[in-house]
Design a protein around this nucleic acid. Structure first.
Lengths: 142, 142
DNA sequence: CATTGACTTAGAGTGCGCTCGAACTCGTAG
DNA sequence: CTACGAGTTCGAGCGCACTCTAAGTCAATG
């Protein structure tokens, strides 16, 4: 698979794939006879996992640490696990934080809903009064 | 309250407070006789809410829209409500996304835990074998 | 009256994570 | 044979949200 296809299938741009290789997030890719990168489909699994780390806010610095451990192969599992466990705690904390903010947003939105409701009631009241006055005029004009 | 105290109480730096005023996130603050900003405690409520928007990933551009509506006072409630409701949906989606990632992390971590357990079992087995051999040697030497 | 320390402004610099441009090389189709 | 499209490298540029520097003002304190 060449870089263009990998880009399409991974959702990254070819620019980004080269950038990731340059900084060491992706392993140095084998090149074909004309020095073009030739990828194995298995790289997609890794890119997908990197995407999860990125989505959950892991900085590239830390992804690099993980990628380096992975390159070193067996013997680094305990450290990789520790890294992911620490990251998982960050993510859990982040979810809790967002949920707390959601409560604040709910309250704020409910407040605006109240204001709008009061305005509607007020308008309805005004209409009723105008209708009553119109009715009174009609009644008087008979 | 001067900027230093507001910085301490809000958690923002004085630099950031001035920056926020410059771009319009914070209203232009009244100055005292020596042109220093003089804040009312009520600004803390606004800064706190801005913090919630920021924490939940709202870009400054959008906070500016909200701040501008707020400055325009009454009559903008419906639009402010809409803006917050849209943002709330973004946040909910984000929480769902993070929770999906947490499942992936759980699986990955469990995988590493398995590997480590297998290694431990293997080591224990090796130790048992060595002990048995040592026992056999001792028995033979008696 | 001199110093200290918190404040003022305008504008430059930083860190992150890409993103793009320029100039080039290949392999294939017309 | 040449034109095209997809690839290559290297390095510059960008958007975001600050963060800091320099040079200056001011009020209070020793």
């Amino acid at each position: 698979m060449k870089i263009g296809e990998l880009a399409r299938r991974s959702g990254l741009s070819a620019h980004t794939i080269r950038y990731y290789e340059r900084i060491g997030l992706l392993p140095y890719a084998d090149r074909d006879r004309s020095r073009q990168r030739d990828y194995d489909a298995s790289i997609l699994t890794w890119i997908d996992f990197l995407g999860r780390l990125k989505t959950t806010g892991m900085p590239i610095r830390e992804m690099l640490r993980y990628a380096a451990l992975r390159e070193n192969g067996s013997g680094t599992e305990a450290e990789r696990r520790l890294l992911l466990e620490r990251h998982r705690e960050h993510v859990r904390a982040r979810v809790a934080e967002l949920e707390a903010c959601l409560l604040v947003l709910d309250t704020k939105i409910a407040g605006y809903a109240d204001i709008e409701k009061r305005i509607e009631d007020h308008d309805a009241h005004q209409r009723t009064r105008r209708n009553q006055q119109a009715g009174a005029r009609q009644a008087g004009s008979r």
